[in-house]
Every structure is written in C-alpha cells, then in structure tokens.
Write a protein that binds this DNA or RNA. Structure first.
Lengths: 229, 229
DNA sequence: CCACGTATAATTGTATACAATTATACGTGG
DNA sequence: CCACGTATAATTGTATACAATTATACGTGG
C-alpha cells in the first residue's frame, strides 16, 4: 500500500501532467483564482510552458476532485473551497478518523505501532522547542500511519484526499497558539487506546481530536483567510 | 446544486471522453477486466472507435477514482473492487448517510420533503406489486434527495461517489428476497424522523438502514458475484 | 544451449493540426 | 440609437504526428 502510493506520487512528480495538476490544485486551494473564474487551456499551458494536452488531462482530474466545473465546449470554472466546505470536511473527517482509529486498533502492525510511538515521543520534544516545521511533518505522518494501519484501501484513500484538501489550513493552525502541544497530547490518547486494544476508545479519541482541531480553528478565525468565501 | 450536477452528467453523456470514462468504469466494476490487467490506450480506442486522446483523459479520471493504477511510461493497470472494499464502503456509508440524514433534518426544503413523501408512498405500491425496476429507481432517488437535502456540497459528492460505486450490487440486492419492502420501510423511518425534526433519530435510522442493507447482502452472499476477488 | 547485448517493435508522453462549437465584433436597417 | 444577423475570432474537442521510453525479438559468442 505504501509502495503503491509512492509510485503514484512519483508519477505525479515526474510527468508534466502531474506537475500541472498539482500547480493548479494548489493555486485553487490557496485562493489564487477567484470563485467561478474561467481557466483557459492555452493561457495556463503558456504560463507553465507546456502544450494543451497535459493541461487538459489535469483539468479532467480537477473536475473529478470537484475543484473545477467543466461545461462542455464552453470552459472550466473554478469551484473553489468555501468556509462551509472546510467545516463540513472536518465533520466528515471526525467520523471517518474515528472509524479509522477503530479499525487500526484491530489491524495495526508492530512496526506501525512502533513508528507511532516514536512519532508522538519526538513530537513532544519539538513542541516544547517550538519547531513548527517538524511538528507539522510529524502531525501529517501520525495521520498517515493511522490511515495505513486501518487496513482499508477505501478508507485510506478517502482520508488522504480530505487531509490534502485542508492541509494548508491545518499547517497554519498547528503553528499558532500552542495547538501543536494540545494536538500531540490527543495523538497520545489515540495511541494509548490503540495499544490497550480498545477500539471504541480509539474511535472516540480520534473523533474528539478532529473536532478539537476544528474548534481551535474556528476560535482563532484562522480558516477564513484560506477560503474563497 | 441539482442543476450543477445535471450539467456534469450532460457533459459525461455527450463527449467522447465521458462515454469512454463510463464504459471503462462500468467494465471494471462489472468485472470484465481482471485484477491487474493492463489497459492499453490504442486497443481501447479502437474498440470504441475513438482516438487515444479521449481514452487518455478517461484514464486520468479513473486513476483518481482509484480504479486503475497508472505507472508512468509503462501502463495502466486495473485495481478493481474487492469484497472487502464493498464491505468497507458500506461501513463508511453507514456513518456518512447518518450524518447526511442529520443535516437534512435541519436543511430540507418543503419541496424536497414532499418529493420524499411521494417517493416512499409510491415505492410502497411498487413493492407490493414486485416492480423491481421502479423500486430500484425510487430507491436511488430517495438517497439522491437525501444527499441534496443535507445542504453540503462535500458530503453530497462523497455519498454520490460511493453510491455509484456499489450501484450494481445494490440493484441486485433490492430485486431479491423482499429487501425492497424492508428497505422502503426503513426509508419511511428516516423520513418520519426528519419530519418530526429529530436529527439524532434521523441519523440513527440512516445508520441502521445502510447496515441492514449490508447485512442483507452478506446473508444472501450476493455480493461475491460482483467483486473481483 | 543459453546468457547477453543490440536492434526492432510497441507503448506512452507531449505537441500540434484541424474540426466543431461558442464568444465577440461590427455593420446595417429601422 | 439599438436590435438583430452575420462575419470573425477565440476556445474547446478530437485526431494525429513525433519524441521518449519500455518491451520484445533475435542473433551471436562462448
């Protein structure tokens, strides 16, 4: 599974289509394009120094992700991500991360468990030192391990997609307001529930973790700066 | 929202790319291609009488849906959908349909509520008559209404994708074993919870509905015939 | 006979050409 | 002046050409 994904990422990095896809995706999520703005194949192709072919292929992917809306023979229009979208994603993620933690309790391998323990331990250190970059990376990795450990291709894919979607928001939230310390404490609770073999406890802790991340975001009003609404 | 989607469907129907996408997707989901089978652009293009361009664009979409795995410069390989995948999707759907019903309770419009009542009433009639085709259509539509009524673009998209994914399995299940009658009764419970303005009741009923659909499927061993495992 | 390397074929990646469709400009009649 | 229709430009849709990469065939030396 990990290898499978690594390959896909390689594909994305080394082909023009993948580069174009990620570039436009980032630009939409970061708010470079306005809502309903029209994306033109030639213009974007020229900007990135490629022909229309890779741009078109990237458009098809973006359409499927729901980031743009393609009207046949007419054009591609940015759908963007609104404040409500981010909120909804956190609600959905809360449920699904819970399910993921529950399943992970029953399917995690010793290696994954060990990496998770190491992750939490190391994050504790960086949190006290205020190393925001490392904290963000460890946080991402904690969730990645959880996704892999649940042993469900379907759930893993869903959570990964959502995770990517709100990545920018999450990173910012973590770097402010001591959220990093609190977040890592919650990771520890999840880890302990998994270690003690209590799936329902793990589910509840993961639920709470996502919800508290969301509440922290709302409290700080941080997410408004990153939406197109 | 409804219109937005209608447009997308039109796009899919009238462009070659859309036709190719749906054809390959159906072929994978119905088991025409084996797991790990390689899909070649030229071969599929010739089969469908189109050039490589629409085929390639369809491939990119299928990759994003997780149905094929594209290795750069090498080829596209069918990932397929396994028994476990179907099971996992039902578990995920159970949670998300619950959330959807909860939100729908708070956001449903009078028009949607009326259509839902009509839907349940009509399905009752067709269930007693054993009209499997109509039952399947009304069942689909019931869930569509629910998805629209929750007023969340994100959740709606998720549920629609999953719904499509297991459509074939669902249709078959409904036509056997009087599941249609039982299913419609559960729809009625959801509807009544929504009408009485009880979001938690609606959530619980929707949870149960998906789980009982899944249990029915397992009991009859029906889903094994529709997977690639 | 087989291991290996090289030539050849097959396949994917990207750019471009042409067709079809849609948007825009512009002129004319009233 | 403006409503309308037609010509023109811009844009997307699809096919095809060429380049780059990978798979296969085949021959030769030992």
């Amino acid at each position: 599974m990990g290898k499978y994904n690594a390959k896909n990422e390689a594909s994305d990095k080394f082909s023009l289509r993948g580069k174009v896809f990620h570039k436009i995706r980032d630009d939409i999520l970061s708010g470079k394009y306005k809502d309903n703005e029209e994306l033109k194949e030639v213009a974007i192709g020229e900007e990135l120094g490629v022909s229309r072919t890779p741009v078109r292929e990237a458009f098809r992917q973006l359409e499927l992700e729901g980031l743009i809306n393609i009207i046949p023979n007419k054009g591609a229009y940015v759908t963007g991500i609104t404040v409500k979208d981010v909120k909804d994603i956190y609600m959905i993620r809360s449920l699904l991360e819970g399910l993921c933690a529950k399943w992970a309790t029953e399917n995690i391998t010793p290696e994954q468990l060990e990496e998770m323990e190491e992750n939490v331990y190391l994050a504790e250190f960086h949190a006290t030192k205020g190393h925001t970059q490392q904290i963000a990376e460890l946080d991402n990795r904690f969730h990645e391990i959880l996704y892999e450990a649940c042993n469900s291709k379907m759930l893993e894919k869903q959570l990964r997609d959502f995770h990517d979607y709100v990545l920018r928001v999450r990173k910012k939230t973590l770097s402010e307001n001591n959220r990093g310390t609190a977040s890592n404490k919650e990771h520890k609770y999840i880890l302990e529930a998994i270690k003690s073999g209590d799936p329902l406890k793990a589910e509840a802790e993961a639920n709470k973790h996502v919800m508290s991340a969301f509440e922290n975001m709302v409290k700080n009003g941080l997410y408004e700066a990153y939406s197109t609404e």
